[in-house]
């Protein structure tokens, strides 16, 4: 399973991370090692074993529709790098329509 630098560039774009050509070339084989390790699972999974997403045989874990106290806004915003008008301030968003 060869991971191309173009595929890594696409993933970087989706994650909104800017990577140089050097970084792409360096990361592609590293990510490939991870993919290969995970792919080993397919060698032992037979057709008679359904893919598993949850290790516990549980369904329908619900909570009642009841309001619980939220955090105070000061607490929530204390961790923000920048705050304006009681809201998280984030840099200009590029992409859509630009």
């Amino acid at each position: 399973m060869a991971l191309t630098t173009a595929e890594v560039a696409r993933l970087a774009a989706l994650a909104r991370i800017e990577l140089s050509e050097d970084e792409l070339a360096r990361l592609a084989p590293q990510l490939e090692v991870i993919l290969e390790s995970v792919a080993q699972v397919t060698e032992v999974a037979g057709d008679d074993v359904a893919p598993m997403s949850h290790p516990l045989p549980l369904t329908n874990v619900f909570r009642a529709d009841e309001v619980r106290p939220s955090l105070a806004a000061e607490q929530v915003l204390a961790a923000a790098p920048a705050v304006e008008d009681e809201r998280f301030r984030v840099p200009r968003i590029l992409g859509e329509g630009q």
Binding site: R63, V67, R68, S70, A73, V76, D85, E86, R87, F88
Partner: peptide, 21 residues
């Protein structure tokens, strides 16, 4: 009354970031 996956209120028009956890 509460959110999909937590107990925060869904009330419309509250002060910003007061219904979060």
């Amino acid at each position: 009354a509460s959110k999909m996956f937590c107990g925060c209120s869904t009330e419309f028009g509250a002060a910003p970031n007061t219904h979060t956890c």
